[in-house]
Simulated scan of single mutants.
Amino acid sequence: MNLFRWLRPSRPGLNATQQTRLQQLPEPQPLGEGSLRAQRWVVLDLETSGLNLNRDQVLSIGAVVIEDGAIDFSQQFERTLHRTDTKLGPSVLIHGLGPSAIAAGCDPVEALLDFMAFVGDSPLLAFHAPFDQHMLGRALKDSLGYRLAHTFLDVADLAPLLCPQANIREAGLDDWTNHFNLQVGERHHASADALATAELSLILFSRARQQHIDSPLALQQRLNQRKRRQQAPVF
Rank of each mutant, 00 (worst) to 15 (best):
M1G: 14
N2F: 00
W6G: 05
L7A: 12
R8L: 03
P9Y: 03
L14Y: 01
N15H: 02
N15W: 02
L22V: 00
Q23M: 09
P30K: 07
G34F: 14
N54P: 04
D56G: 08
L59F: 02
S60D: 06
A63S: 04
V64R: 02
V65Q: 04
I66Q: 01
I66L: 05
I66S: 01
D68S: 05
G69P: 00
I71M: 01
F73T: 14
S74R: 14
F77L: 08
E78K: 11
H82Q: 15
T84P: 13
D85K: 10
V92P: 04
V92M: 11
H95M: 10
L97C: 12
L97I: 14
C106I: 15
C106Q: 15
D107A: 08
V109Y: 10
V109A: 07
A111V: 15
D114Y: 10
F115E: 00
F118L: 09
G120A: 05
D121L: 08
S122Q: 05
L125N: 07
F127L: 05
A129S: 11
A129G: 08
P130G: 09
D132H: 07
Q133L: 08
H134M: 12
M135W: 06
L136I: 02
L144Q: 08
L148F: 05
L148W: 10
A149Q: 13
H150M: 03
F152Y: 08
L153A: 09
V155F: 09
L158E: 01
P160T: 07
L162Y: 02
P164R: 10
Q165K: 15
A166P: 03
A166R: 09
A166Y: 07
I168Q: 14
L173A: 03
N178F: 12
H179P: 10
E186Y: 14
R187N: 11
A192D: 03
A198V: 10
A198L: 04
S201M: 12
R207H: 12
R207Y: 05
I213H: 04
D214G: 13
D214M: 10
A218T: 15
Q220C: 14
Q220D: 11
L223W: 03
L223E: 03
N224P: 13
P233D: 09
V234Q: 14
